[in-house]
């Protein structure tokens, strides 16, 4: 995944106004997971952006991935990504999802979500605050509106 996304004027209306998130943990310490969970509670009010947790992968728009990708979880991640309907985007949350974090040299860690699926946005932090996670989602939505992000694997 090294080419720059072309600015295609694709209509991502469904995603722009009400993105449904699917959360997947590929071997995290749960620090990022509880912050993702906290980001969906009333104090941070994600529903003002239309952000909701989706009941199933078939209805998901944005895949939120946490965790240093362990070798077994990598297959599941790929399968999950393939099952998502287009247009689809991936958010890598936390230092471990970006490049493996502190576990990058371990024998059972692949090291980074972008080695398995194409990633649309990265949210650094260990763990990132819930505000940062929501900020990342909003910035991704802005970029989608402007057509700066492409949904890979769709055509």
């Amino acid at each position: 995944m090294s080419q720059k996304p072309q600015t295609k004027k694709v209509d991502y209306r469904l995603v722009k106004y009400s993105p449904w998130l699917v959360h997947f943990n590929t071997g995290a310490c749960n620090g990022c997971d509880i912050e993702v969970l906290a980001a969906l509670t009333p104090l941070y009010d994600p529903e003002r952006f239309g952000v909701k947790l989706s009941p199933s992968i078939r209805h998901g728009d944005i895949l939120v991935v946490t965790g240093a990708v362990t070798k077994k979880a990598a297959d599941r991640l790929k399968r999950l990504y393939d099952q998502m309907p287009c247009p689809k985007f991936v958010l890598a949350v936390g230092a471990c999802a970006i490049d493996g974090g502190v576990f990058s040299k371990s024998y059972s860690v692949v090291g980074g979500v972008d080695r398995v699926v194409p990633v649309s946005a990265y949210i650094p932090g260990c763990p990132p605050r819930p505000e940062a996670i929501l900020d990342g989602v909003v910035k991704l939505l802005e970029a989608i509106k402007k057509g700066e992000v492409e949904s890979y694997g769709c055509d």
């Binding site: 071997g27 995290a28 502190v102 576990f103 040299k105 371990s106 860690v109």
Partner: peptide
């Protein structure tokens, strides 16, 4: 569970 090989990592 997620086996991240932490015990081995600690030795390194």
């Amino acid at each position: 569970y997620n086996h991240r090989g932490i015990e081995k990592l600690c030795e390194k």
